[in-house]
């Protein structure tokens, strides 16, 4: 193993991890904080990719700008889905079966609708930076990886600030622990959860834009991310954004090394294998007690 190969695999893994964090942060909020097992999240990420694709292809808008423009729409979509989820499942009692089937159905509907609308061909976006690479002596930094990674870190930092510094943000964190305390803060838990779920889906708009910068996208790509996002979520410990980032970096690096030294066809099994192993041996996450 040459030092060159090693360092580049490490850097590529960290860039990948930065992007994975963006895909996972929505699940971290929904699953970790709100206890909503939204397995449809990767479907919304792909939807975000296609929106970025359309804006890019039709109007030549930069995919990241497109992602930002799509944020309010995705927020409203998330809020609407939570409203349905709340009335149909959460209010009726703690039965997980139907809620899971609901999100599974949403995932499926999103995917099939995209297939009907766009077919199964790969789509990609155009931007000036996509083909460029910054070379720092040994290390190669492809901009199509670096740009999404940096924006993803920015998004995580903003979310962390929001969750720890604002009233609504703290109320969202409190929802996980103590509904009573929340009532004492005179906050309506349903409204708080609706906002949080809206934010969680909104992050998918950004993650989708990042994804289509990194690689061409077709509707069923989302499924590959289900295992990844939950692996990261569980690895990092539920409901913590810094944990999510660490888990994402870790998975990115492990995948990158697997791809470099064993071949890319094994990469999907890594994340899922890691997920199964974590569930089996450290369900509280690597940082958990």
């Amino acid at each position: 193993m040459t030092a060159d190969l090693f360092v580049n695999a490490l850097v590529a893994g960290m860039l990948l991890g930065g992007f994975y964090a963006a895909v996972t942060v929505g699940i971290s909020i929904a699953f970790g904080i709100l206890d909503i097992v939204n397995i449809a999240h990767p479907g919304f990420v792909i939807l975000g990719s296609y929106i970025a694709y359309m804006m890019n292809a039709r109007f030549g808008i930069d995919p990241i700008v497109a992602g930002i423009l799509a944020l309010p729409v995705f927020y409203l979509l998330g809020a609407a889905i939570y409203q349905i989820y709340y009335h149909s499942f959460e209010k009726r009692g703690p039965e997980a079966l139907r809620g899971l089937a609901f999100f599974f159905g949403l995932l499926f509907i999103t995917e099939v609708t995209l297939i009907l609308a766009f077919g199964v061909d790969y789509r990609y976006v155009q931007a000036a930076y996509i083909d460029r690479t910054v070379n720092l002596r040994l290390v190669h930094l492809p901009l199509r990886m670096l740009v999404p990674c940096l924006f993803s870190l920015l998004m995580l930092a903003l979310l962390q600030l929001y969750l720890t510094r604002t009233f609504t943000g703290r109320a969202i964190m409190a929802v996980a622990q103590d509904q009573l305390a929340l009532r004492l803060m005179a906050a309506d838990p349903v409204r708080i959860k609706r906002i949080a779920f809206g934010i969680s889906i909104a992050t998918a708009a950004m993650a989708g834009a990042f994804l289509i910068i990194i690689q061409p996208v077709e509707p069923s790509v989302g499924r590959e991310y289900i295992g990844r996002v939950f692996a990261i979520c569980v690895l990092g410990g539920l409901g913590s954004l810094p944990g999510t980032l660490i888990g994402a970096m870790l998975l990115g690096v492990v995948e990158s090394f697997t791809a470099t030294f064993y071949g890319p066809s094994w990469a999907p099994a890594v994340s899922f294998g890691l997920l199964l192993a974590t569930l089996a041996f450290r369900p509280a996450g690597l940082l958990g007690r």
Partner: peptide, 24 residues
Amino acid sequence: LTLRLRGAFFSIATLALAVVLQTL
């Protein structure tokens, strides 16, 4: 491996299982 945990983890693990086996 997973049934000692909350039900949702089992479901997620079964999703993962499909991809692991397919890769194999």
